[in-house]
Write a protein that binds this DNA or RNA. Sequence first.
RNA 1: GGCCCUAUCGUCUAACGGUUAGGACACAUGCUUUUCAAGCAUGGAACCCGGGUUCGAUUCCCGGUAGGGUCACCA
Length: 449
Amino acid sequence: MSIRVRFPPSPTGFCHVGTARMAVLNYLYAKKHGGVIIFRSEDTDKERSKLEYEEDIKEQLQWLGLSWDEFYRTTELVGTHTKALQKIIDEDKAYISEEESKKEPGKMAKVVRLRNPNKVVTFTDVIRGEISFDTTELKDFVIARAIDDPLYQFAVVVDDGDMGITHVIRGEDHISNTPRQILIQEALGYPRPVYAHYPLHLGADRSKLSKRTGDVAVRSYREKGYLAPALLNYIATLGWTAPSGKEVLSLEEMIGEFELEDIHKSGAVFDTEKLNWYNRQYLQALPMDEFTKESNAILKASLETRAIAWNEAMGTSLASLIRERISVWEDLRTLIGDGELDFFFMEPKPESSRIPQGKVSVADTMRHLMSVKQLLSDIPEREYADPERIKAAVWEYAGTEGRGAVLWPLRYSLTGLERSPDPFEVAHLIGKEAALRRIDAALALISNV
RNA sequence: GGCCCUAUCGUCUAACGGUUAGGACACAUGCUUUUCAAGCAUGGAACCCGGGUUCGAUUCCCGGUAGGGUCACCA
């Protein structure tokens, strides 16, 4: 029998990490065993369901690299629900009950209730083993608001049955719904699928992940500049460990290693730090031209909003330096927003008092700056293209005079910042002419005091 | 509160009765060509508690405790 799984999100909000986890786990299992994946938009709650959310869920899952074979909307299947409902009413396994509406107090409504056989339901969960419930306390629970308006519990069972779902892989918040669904299933005469309930992930304080404990929408991670494969990798390994022990895995590798039995039993805290680490791994692995394209786009946009002239060539040569410093694209926006990269695109504004390093005198600092300027200007233009060559030119002098005393004022004059990449790299990137000009500017500044 | 599930470093986890309890993230310290970043090295850091079973329990069983889930005419 071929495997058929489903992911049935309810389109009542943007695609969140939990939705993505459900989709990933189902996807991995189906792909591993050559099964069929059904995406079913569980839109039975007509008040909260919106097409906009359904679109978002599809969009984000596709962005993550997931796909499905069949797509349905629960509300478009009501015909079959009504038929199934009528069938068990006719068989007296369910009945219509006229009672006061809970949705509209004061009004009478005809809801459908299942005739509960009041027995102990036992089922086997692939992840947790045998679980049993006494369903007596459930009473004759409601399965439809009206004959043509089924509740989720009922619709799910009918749809799963009709679609031949063989494996139900879902969060453990559904574990106590399972006996209820099994009762409906048995009334309807459908075969019981294999169940696998994975634990929910938690917020940093071990509480349930909600809007309050941080970002949960996939789209917000995307907007912050997380890479799809990185997020996917993290989400998949949050609650599942590959038998090989590998932590960084491609979708293909995950499919190859995936088994339901390896899903953990306890809930894991969603750790943004670790996600960032994953993202960095993937950022590092990006082809350089792809990285540059994106970093240039971010750089350009950010500089232009601050009215700083954009320089494509400069941006491109900055790429590898940027790659060393960020984990997520958002980090680059922060970096540039804080002005830490400005000196590559405009003249820096050093403060004269900070040009000398520590207690080094102004006179000595000026002497060093002038010497370094001479050493730099002696470098032939073509050799200036190599930062190593620049370092070599200055190194011996810095060694004898004191590295800090020489290198600090050099770097500070070039960047105007207390923290920056090393002076040789900077001198190389901004070019010989600009470097000499900036040293002159610093000398003028410091001698005026 | 009833019912259900879970329990190893701060976090994610490995271990499937006998290990110096391993790895990753984070953290601390050091090193490398001033600062920053990266990199490398080193380090601190865990078996929830109490009973059993056993020659021997982190591992198996029971109880407690804690956390989570669920108790809708939501999904």
